[in-house]
Measured scan of single mutants.
Amino acid sequence: MAAAAAAGAGPEMVRGQVFDVGPRYTNLSYIGEGAYGMVCSAYDNVNKVRVAIKKISPFEHQTYCQRTLREIKILLRFRHENIIGINDIIRAPTIEQMKDVYIVQDLMETDLYKLLKTQHLSNDHICYFLYQILRGLKYIHSANVLHRDLKPSNLLLNTTCDLKICDFGLARVADPDHDHTGFLTEYVATRWYRAPEIMLNSKGYTKSIDIWSVGCILAEMLSNRPIFPGKHYLDQLNHILGILGSPSQEDLNCIINLKARNYLLSLPHKNKVPWNRLFPNADSKALDLLDKMLTFNPHKRIEVEQALAHPYLEQYYDPSDEPIAEAPFKFDMELDDLPKEKLKELIFEETARFQPGYRS
């Protein structure tokens, strides 16, 4: 834990890192770190609560700039109880001085990944967590956004079992017609939660990839272990087919990539493993919904509104309290091709509203 900075004593240090967030945020305490930044909790002297502050230093890398800009653009436009918001952003007053960006968010005690390492969940908890994931996802999908990296560590939890989806750095506007060349190379989302079509096709992607990830998360809540822990690309596919069985001819016809289709045709026939054999203690309604989410063919996979209306979630289902976005989200430009200098300018502009004396 960093010592509390005395008023006016300059930035606090946390594990050798400068955290320049005073005077409003003090009493910093280390939480963890990701690929390009550290997260601390801090005391907000204005709202009198502890908050989470993520320090991001992305400006050396085009990919990190892209992810940072995506996350900020999306989260500043989203407003939903099951999606983490941005409360404040701290950065230098000029673009030349801006080396880091500090993002202030609600402090959540833990995440689903940490929880599943230590606790076996009751059916009631599984049901409530799944409902909140789908409630947040309904809003995301209504904005025409794909999260693309749903996994237990991106689901934040607090002691009252509130759940918030975080990390929109890989999110995209849904565009089933656009052929994202190089899709697989830039697709760094965790393999275990990846839909089979991501490994088999490169053309376009749809909201059904997020539903697949939610199915993987439900299976993990039922058993405290990942359902498809593939060691590499082909191993991942083999794990999936080992449980779902061989795809039907109709399902194979959806695979545009001939090499991928021929690979699947070359494999020995596998039978589907019954879900109640894998999860003998699970609620039968939970397994019915799991089956509809972990469907090989993305066109037959359940959609988020149908999933919310499934009998497993009937005690929570309330369409009048499951809000959607006001308007579909649009990125003005494809960020993939922009140089990091341009992305830095866009991050600077996007964060201006939090600067003292800002006038829109």
Rank of each mutant, 00 (worst) to 15 (best):
L308Q: 12
K272V: 07
K259H: 02
Q132W: 01
K54P: 06
A7Q: 14
L335N: 10
Y43T: 01
V273Y: 04
R79M: 06
H61Q: 13
R277W: 06
D321L: 10
Q97K: 13
W275M: 14
A171S: 14
G230N: 00
K292P: 06
T160K: 13
Y193I: 09
L163F: 05
I256W: 12
F348N: 07
I302T: 01
L137A: 09
C166G: 02
E60P: 00
A6K: 04
K114H: 12
I53P: 00
L146S: 08
H310R: 04
W275E: 04
S213D: 09
N82Y: 15
L346A: 11
Q105F: 06
P323S: 10
F354G: 12
Q249K: 15
L343K: 09
A3M: 11
V49D: 07
Q306I: 02
D283I: 06
L267G: 03
P328N: 02
D336K: 09
T94F: 11
R359L: 09
D210W: 07
R24M: 11
I56N: 15
N82T: 11
G85K: 08
E349R: 04
Y316Q: 07
R225S: 15
V188E: 08
S266F: 01
I133Y: 04
R359D: 12
A35Q: 05
T181K: 06
A219W: 13
K292W: 03
A4D: 05
Y30D: 02
E33H: 02
Y102V: 05
W275N: 11
T190A: 10
G34F: 04
R277G: 10
A35Y: 07
E186M: 02
A307P: 06
A307L: 01
N144V: 07
A2Y: 04
N262V: 03
S122Q: 09
E33G: 00
D332K: 08
C161D: 03
G182Y: 12
G32A: 04
P274N: 05
L343E: 11
R67Q: 06
D235V: 14
Y43C: 11
F348S: 12
Y193Q: 10
L267E: 03
I126A: 06
L244P: 07
G34Y: 01
K99F: 03
N257C: 08
H239F: 10
D179N: 14
V188Q: 12
I84D: 02
D100V: 14
F279C: 07
M293T: 03
F331E: 05
A286R: 02
G215P: 13
N276C: 06
Y358Q: 13
P58W: 02
L252T: 05
D106H: 04
A174V: 14
V51Q: 08
D251W: 02
Q97G: 07
R191T: 08
N238S: 10
D124L: 06
P23C: 01
S320W: 05
I53N: 14
C65Y: 13
E186G: 07
R77T: 01
F78G: 10
T181F: 10
P152Y: 03
P311A: 01
M199Y: 07
I103K: 07
